[in-house]
């Protein structure tokens, strides 16, 4: 009872990274609350899947194995999750802020009458005193997220409803194995007895999902370009720098919108969050929506021809000037001085 639950997102039988990231965070929250961590796996051919989850400190894996649960459709997954929550009364439930999680979580919250905070960038445990009633609440989940287009950071709480439900984007939390030898137990869900005919009014006729080609999150060095790069052609310079340094290329939303670089490479509030050793921002002004996705980089170099660009405020090194002038010099020095 009152444990921390994470909905595990599956593509076939492959577990989404975001779910493992949430388990990592969920374990910390559960430990702090002195509660257990439980995972929910709905799909088909899931034999042995629990073994991939235990190392994250999962105590209980709830598994519903039924061919009708893959590919995902809203109503059957909603039915099973709500039924489980009804029985298990979670304290906290976390979903990925993916197209799947953002389809399912609102529906679950509507059914259970719980509050939901989308796209949290941070989750913490804390107390609260209601300013009007002076009622005290212990150990609430602080759901922290940017709001109003990123211009403010809001801390949201659900004092009176349970579970406290939040979604978090992929890459925002870190993924870390808690204990490779950790072991929990499996609880089977009898999907057949729970699901109803009317849950299957939506049929998936066709599905094309590609594997992600770029691994921005894992790259130690990210060379990011913004609108200031000026063209798709000019981006080649960034690819060259990334190539010689052994990094990946990323872009701001303005660069993505202008078609200079693919959407998959967008960094920021509505893109990927990265924490590389080195982030080189080229021709990026540094809007909060962008910095939300890179501010935790260990080192930031900003290349901008505007000395007052906001990105300079969070940079360790600023180079003021034209990126077309600067990047070739960096490449040249590197090639001459390393082998």
């Amino acid at each position: 009872m009152n444990n921390v639950f994470v909905y595990i997102e599956l593509e076939g039988t492959e577990i989404a990274d975001v779910s493992l990231e949430l388990l990592t965070k969920g374990k910390k929250l559960a430990t702090q609350l002195n509660k257990k961590l439980e995972a929910i796996c709905l799909g088909s051919k899931l034999d042995g899947i629990e073994k991939e989850l235990y190392p994250y400190g999962v105590d209980v894996v709830h598994i519903a194995d039924d061919s009708r649960l893959t590919p995902y459709t809203t109503l059957p997954h909603n039915r099973i999750v709500c039924d489980l929550f009804e029985k298990e009364k979670p304290e906290i439930a976390l979903f990925g802020a993916t197209s799947l999680g953002r389809d399912l979580a609102p529906r679950v919250c509507s059914t259970t009458g719980s509050g939901l905070t989308a796209d949290c960038t941070s989750l913490e445990i804390g107390d609260h005193t209601d300013p009007k009633t002076k009622k005290e609440y212990k150990d609430l989940l602080y759901q922290i997220r940017p709001a109003f287009g990123g211009n403010i950071i809001a801390t949201i709480i659900n004092p009176d409803t349970r579970p406290q439900i939040a979604t978090v984007r992929e890459g925002v939390m870190k993924k870390e194995i808690a204990d490779a030898t950790y072991s929990g137990k499996v609880k089977k869900i009898d999907a057949k007895s729970i699901l109803k005919e009317e849950d299957f009014v939506i049929q998936v006729i066709e599905r094309q999902i590609e594997k992600s080609k770029v691994n921005l999150k894992g790259a130690p060095i990210v060379v990011a370009g913004g609108y200031g790069v000026g063209s798709k052609d000019n981006f080649k310079l960034l690819y060259e720098l990334a190539h010689v340094l052994g990094g990946e290329v990323a872009g701001s939303r303005a660069a993505v919108d202008a078609g200079y670089v693919e959407h998959e490479r967008q960094v920021g509030q509505t893109g990927v969050t990265v924490r590389p050793k080195l982030y080189i921002a080229c021709g990026i002004s540094g809007a909060v929506q962008h910095t939300a996705g890179m501010a935790e980089s260990a080192m930031v170099i900003a290349i901008n021809n505007d000395q007052d660009a906001p990105i300079n405020a969070i940079a360790d090194y600023t180079i003021t000037g034209d990126l077309n002038d600067i990047i070739p010099k960096m490449i040249k020095y590197y090639k001459l001085n390393t082998k």
Binding site: G113, S114, G115, L116, T117, H128, Y142, P146, A147, G150, N151, I152, I153, A154, T155, I156, I157, N158, P159, D160, T161, V288, T291, A295, P310, N312, A313, I314, A315, D316, Y317, T318, I319, T320, G321, D322, D325, I326, K329, M330, Y333
Partner: peptide, 28 residues
């Protein structure tokens, strides 16, 4: 059910920054 506990303006923490220009000397 959701309540806003707190709202903060986004402020950047100031960093110690090294400012450089486009000269070979600086880039090297």
């Amino acid at each position: 059910p959701t309540k806003v506990k707190n709202i903060e303006n986004v402020v950047f923490k100031a960093k110690e920054t090294v400012d450089l220009d486009t000269s070979e000397k600086d880039i090297d």
